[in-house]
Design a protein around this nucleic acid. Structure first.
Lengths: 234, 234
DNA sequence: GCGTTGTCAAGAGCAGTGCTCTCGAATTGG
DNA sequence: CCAATTCGAGAGCACTGCTCTTGACAACGC
């Protein structure tokens, strides 16, 4: 982004940045419902109504934070993927899974904002989409490259996906899963849902009183199982 | 529960019932954050402070609704399981999965309350646990009986669970997974997380712009894949 | 250089929330 | 019948998101 031309524009951009920064800190400590415009304004030495010059409503502030969150986890995932040997596809999958889990544990409230209950009358605007799919794009790259390299175990006796979702899968294929067969796309999405289901279970307390000793070890092991579901050779 | 002896106790129980009923209706239409004690009181022709005679705080009302929700989905799952031939283990698994998804689609806000973001300063009291595990118990029964009947596909080349979680798995085994080997317990939990991950993805909008045509068909197919992960023969 | 125009912070105010406290009335158990 | 308990009502506190008006300031065109 180019530096704002006029002084007004520059100070405006700086204030927006400062607001989101304070709001993100409040979000991290109080959670989404505890985020209050008045509290943010108070911390900035502003009066509450002034905030509305920069964010027309509380939901707009939340949208900004959601986009930030998607970008943060997307970046973590991209870095984890880039730091693994490109031809170690199973290793890249595990690294990506760990990155998601670690980011979620470090930012539980932001994770809840992204993958928990939707905010009440809130509908995600279209401009969250590019940020929201960064992590999925990385998964698709791993699978696509593994498939191209012939590193995917052939599917077992699993039935073929029903023809009723062929159009959906075509769309996914042209978007990110280039040349990947239907069956492999579905297996990847299933493993993907398994990853987020596992992280959500751990974060939202479903594993309490069940898994207590070594959740990281359990997580690694189940993600390896899901790698097997995709067909990634270890 | 025995009928209250005195008239006071009877009317009190009835009022508690009525409050939770109205609150559940508000929850279904407005969502958790839109549930207001004052609105419930207003609809009952009461003054807001009177509600506090029956629920000491808003969180206590939510707790009651959470328990109700867990019982509702637990009952749906138990019924779906009971209506399938007992020796059709893969069929029972699929029926259970469908029951969870259909209940979630029919009661999205209540599902979000159970499996979405935890309510802000809210910590689930211990007395939610028995209701919360009803569905898991059904899964464990299916797997346990399938294992006892020799209807479980032997594990492939998957690695064994790490010894660091052996104690956790022992606890799960004595609780619900009687005589089930470690490996199978972990595969079941992974499939379980995959089920809820898939339902949450669909409900919370992660599948928007991706899966549009036949989500039920996609769901059935991925649940069949997860049945294969557990090792349930079709 | 000087108005005009648009932007801004501030304040007051509205409608709503969870929750507490007090007070008088009703119901209960002895 | 009377004391103890329980209850609904009302007022009130501190807080929220949001709107509207007012007066000051900066940017731009002439």
């Amino acid at each position: 982004m180019s530096a704002g031309r006029t002084a007004r524009e520059r100070v405006r951009a700086e204030l927006i940045r400062e607001i989101t920064e304070i709001a993100r800190r409040h979000l991290a400590t109080e959670g989404a419902t505890g985020l209050s415009l008045r509290a943010v304004a108070r911390e900035m030495g502003m009066v509450s109504s002034a905030i509305y010059r920069y964010f027309p409503s509380r939901d707009d502030l939340l949208t900004a934070l959601i986009i930030d969150g998607y970008n943060a986890v997307g970046e973590a995932v991209e870095n984890a993927d880039a730091e693994t040997r490109a031809d170690d596809f199973a290793g890249r999958w595990l690294a990506v899974c760990r990155a998601v889990r670690e980011w979620a544990l470090a930012h539980p409230h932001e994770y809840a904002l992204l993958h928990g209950s939707p905010v009440p009358g809130y509908k995600a605007p279209e401009d969250t989409v590019p940020a929201a799919v960064r992590d999925t794009v990385v998964l698709a790259q791993i699978v696509t490259q593994a498939h191209a390299a012939g590193a995917i175990e052939p599917a077992g006796a699993a039935p073929a996906p029903p023809p009723s979702i062929a159009a959906d899968l075509d769309r996914a294929r042209t978007a990110v899963f280039l040349d990947v067969p239907d069956d492999l796309i579905v297996r990847s999405l299933t493993a993907w849902a398994g990853l987020y289901g596992t992280v959500s279970f751990e974060l939202f307390g479903q594993f309490n009183n069940v898994l207590e000793d070594d959740r990281a070890g359990y997580f690694d092991h189940t993600m390896t199982l899901l790698a097997g579901l995709i067909g990634l050779r270890p």
